[in-house]
Simulated scan of single mutants.
Amino acid sequence: MVWGKVIGALAGYLFLRIPGAIIGALIGHWFDRGMAQDFTRKGGFGQFLFGADKAVDDANFLYTLFAVMGHLAKAKGRVTKQDIEQTTMLMDRLRLAGDARSEAQDAFREGKQAGFPLEKTVKDFRDAFYGNRDVLQLFMEQLMAMALNDGVLEKSEHEVLVTVGKSLGFTRFQIDQWLMMQKAAFRFHQRQHQHQHEGQRQKTTSADELEDAYQILGVKAQQSDAEIKKAYRKLMARHHPDKLASKGLPEEVMKEAQERARDIQAAYDTIKNKRGMR
């Protein structure tokens, strides 16, 4: 964490030039150190994270993710078995154990409570990541996966997703477009899993599967090969681990983005094979 040092140095320079900058940087350093220690002392998310400099961002992402997931699950009126399983699986994939897992569970329960300040929590999260759209879109993808865990998006869930999306700075059109892509990915993934489970090798691509593949990439069948390839490359670049690492995401969270990247790759391969693209 370095922002305390930067701001302190700038403020000091404005008043006392070079000596003031030095004093301000020292004061800022003490502030940064204290903030990092606060998260380290928490034991849970703080111990799970990868160093003091990333502690605040990592803990913020994980807390907000599980709290909003709890709120989204409760929006239907009751938390279902699928909601619990989806949340537990995510904790497993993130390798949350001990205190870190307890804090994630506490965040989920907090999000379920009546009066949970959804918009404020989400806006604070957006500000913590300086409105970085790649990080915020990945956050939305995680919530959409939660909402679609049973293959059905209820009106109350859609309303929560729209509220969260708008609080993050996205438009309703963008949110609905991503939902369409996520729904297609859910169906596509289900078919792929079914083929593997049944030990089948699919020699032909059904019309429904091909349509889902186009929707995963956010393109239409009548678009050119060049346009489809451009959309594919843009989506893959957005989910590239090196790029996401530079945005301040927790390392384990980036693995979730790789799951999405695999669906994008499978959809592109389906389209490419069908069209004979090189």
Rank of each mutant, 00 (worst) to 15 (best):
Q196A: 14
M180G: 04
E211R: 13
Q174T: 08
A207H: 01
Q192E: 02
F173S: 13
K203S: 06
Q174D: 02
A207W: 00
G218K: 09
H193R: 07
K220D: 09
R191A: 07
R187G: 07
H193T: 12
A207N: 10
Q182A: 15
Q182M: 04
I175Q: 07
Q202K: 12
A226G: 05
Q222R: 13
H193W: 03
Q215F: 02
M181T: 01
A184C: 07
Q190S: 13
I175T: 11
L217A: 06
M180C: 01
E211N: 09
G218L: 09
Q177E: 11
H193D: 14
S206F: 02
H197F: 10
Q215N: 09
T171C: 08
K203G: 13
D212H: 06
F188K: 07
W178N: 08
D212S: 02
F173I: 13
F188G: 05
R201T: 05
T205V: 15
T204V: 11
Q202I: 12
Q177A: 15
M181V: 04
Q194R: 15
D225A: 15
G199A: 13
D176C: 09
L179R: 10
A213T: 09
T204F: 10
H197V: 07
G199P: 00
R201G: 04
R172F: 00
S206D: 12
S224Y: 03
S206T: 04
Q194H: 03
S206I: 03
I175S: 09
L210A: 07
Q200R: 15
R201H: 00
Q174H: 11
Q196F: 05
Q222F: 06
G199C: 08
A221W: 06
R172H: 02
Q194F: 08
Q200V: 11
Q222H: 08
K203W: 04
H197S: 12
A213E: 08
M180F: 05
Q215D: 14
K220E: 07
Q177K: 14
A184L: 04
Y214F: 15
A226T: 01
F173K: 15
R187Q: 12
Y214C: 12
S206K: 09
G218M: 07
Q215C: 08
R172K: 14
S206R: 13
E211T: 08
A213L: 06
M180W: 00
Q192A: 01
T171Q: 10
Q182G: 05
Q215G: 04
I216N: 07
Q202E: 13
R191K: 08
Q222C: 01
Q215M: 10
D212Q: 09
